[in-house]
Design a protein around this nucleic acid. Structure first.
Lengths: 345, 345
DNA sequence: TTGTATGCGTTATCAG
DNA sequence: CTGATAACGCATACAA
């Protein structure tokens, strides 16, 4: 098989334990033997067997990434590769490994999490999704196992759960205020699943902004759609058939905004001349759209990076109280938003 | 710590080895003791410690996924999430785990592969990229370690390497013939990196089709661009300033086609009335573009799925000769391709 | 069919 | 500062 610690020990004329100490950089080892052992390790091409090491340490230096079930609509969203990149960057810096969940159903994911936990495969987990009630979070909490969720955890547990998220209320409020300043008077809100926290929070910010501007939010300008792309198309149909169609739309997601854009294009309604669009996320696609989308960058990469960072902290000290990290956002003005200048149609 | 095999043994009044045999489904175990042990396992909530198991078996039931370095332009391409999904699906069926590489540079990736190999972290690897010369492949080949590449491996080694790929020559030929049948006479080819096998192969198919149609391929209609999106924009500038601009373009990638589309839109050139576009991949974006892209579906998901499948086969029998799997493709006609009917501009 | 003993490669404890 | 030894949890060769 491979070169073991014993082979190194023999060749260096020391005990295996000494070699182990050299690997661990134990301070109480003489510079001389250290050098000698390292030379032999080099010569023999020694690499520690992680399985043996994990076994005795009861620690793996690997974190599990829990993906949402495929039935979760936004799965195809570029959001995931991007958080993953953020996580990857941090993991690489800190020499952590990444283990990916493969289950495709909610039930399967729960089982996989349980298995990961009991089989001691990982030191902690990052949950890439958030639902209102979640047996997985309850399980992990019950076991006091380190984990971090990307997004908003269930309200009732949010005090006990570490998470990274944006301030979605504030973000949506800012977007709404921006459109207000652009003189829009009828601003529609195109949400995702009605129970999703992202949608809930952003709707709240939207309403706050309207009210602070002395306007009364009108429910008929608020629609919800689950399907990431088609939802955008349907929203347009609904909204544009109002007696007084909106002059601006706030759309939950860039991909959804693409659906909006396309339907508007089909209806021969010009963006941004007749209708302004502002969406969220700023994935690559937002920039590539025609016209390029004005969108709120939620710094997805950083979301992932910070989640990984926070998880490490929890692994180092699992007893510490839960923490949250709020990631900043930034409005990226591109070509789907403009000053509203009276009726055009 | 957790429940071990000994705990189960004690409670079931058998030896640890018996429990081990029950887990392994050893046939020479009496139905009675088997049932008894299983009941206790259930009761105690026993899960095997994977690290201990991996150590003795020298096998992990985990495969490593090697991602391309971030410097590789198409990294942000939806191609990756999609292959990943394919791999994931197969891994889940076969109860394999997935370990993700995190290195960001070519050098780092090589080191990570070496580490993965020596430290016995994984049973095999899937390489999600292909370059013309590759120290990683040489390393793996030298060690006779099971791996599969998604895409075309270096020519010189292709006999020894297992891989999954599309028949890119045939695919491009078909696309070209399709445009020929649409009466296009000046068909441009917008490639990616000139040395990339995808580009090389597709260019070959494109030229074959033209020659078989009795036409002489014209180099001035062939351009190459590395940047995934901006490349498309630049290609349009180059091509449309030819004395006789092309009436159709074959574009290496859907995202690149979005760049093409946008630049054409800016130039006020109508697609498909004045110029037809056919691209490759059929990622989600192709459908969401305005107008929706006619594109060649290369069945990315299946590419991933089959790669995982092939890898398992190699793990089971590493001595077997290298194999390749060619994944089918399919032309998806949407709204960027139409019959060419004489000059319009 | 089941139990006993041993080893996988490492780390940690305890002597020296 | 270094060496011997036990232990981590499991699988298997050999006995019974």
């Amino acid at each position: 098989m491979g070169v073991t610690i014993k082979d190194v020990a023999r060749k260096a004329n020391v005990a295996p334990s000494t070699v182990s100490r050299v690997i661990a950089n134990n301070p109480k080892i003489s510079a001389k033997t250290k050098a000698k052992v390292q030379a032999v390790m080099e010569e023999l091409g020694y690499y520690p067997n992680v399985n043996a090491r994990n076994l005795v340490n009861n620690r793996t230096n690997v974190v599990g990434i829990i993906m949402p079930s495929v039935s979760y609509a936004p799965f195809q969203n570029p959001f995931f590769p991007e958080v993953l990149r953020g996580i990857t960057a941090q993991a690489n810096e800190k020499k952590y490994g990444l283990y990916l969940s493969t289950a495709q159903t909610d039930k399967g994911i729960l089982e996989e999490v349980i298995e990961m936990y009991y089989s001691r495969r990982v030191d902690g987990m990052i949950l890439l999704y958030s639902t209102v009630s979640d047996p997985i979070i309850e399980f992990l909490l019950d076991k006091a196992f380190p984990f971090v969720v990307v997004g908003q955890p269930p309200e009732a547990l949010s005090g006990q759960v570490s998470y990274v998220n944006n301030d979605n209320v504030k973000a949506a409020k800012m977007v709404t205020e921006y459109l207000l300043l652009l003189k829009h008077e009828r601003i529609a809100f195109v949400g995702g699943r009605e129970e999703a926290y992202v949608t809930l929070d952003r709707k709240k910010g939207y309403i706050e902004a309207l009210e602070e501007a002395g306007m009364t939010p009108d429910d008929s300008y608020i629609v919800h759609h689950d399907e990431i792309f088609e939802g955008g198309e349907q929203a347009v149909i609904e909204l544009m058939s109002r007696k007084h169609p909106p002059t601006a739309m706030i759309v939950m997601d860039d991909l959804m905004a693409l659906g909006v854009l396309r339907m508007l294009f089909n209806m021969n309604i010009s963006v941004p001349n007749e209708v302004s669009i502002v969406s969220f996320n700023n994935v690559l696609m937002a920039e590539l759209a025609t016209p390029p989308l004005t969108t709120l960058d939620i710094h997805i990469h950083e979301l992932g990076y910070r989640a990984a960072e926070l998880l490490q902290k929890r692994i180092a000290d699992p007893e510490a109280p839960a923490e949250k990290r709020i990631i900043s956002h930034k409005l990226i003005r591109r070509e789907t938003s403009a000053v509203y200048s009276g009726e055009r149609r």
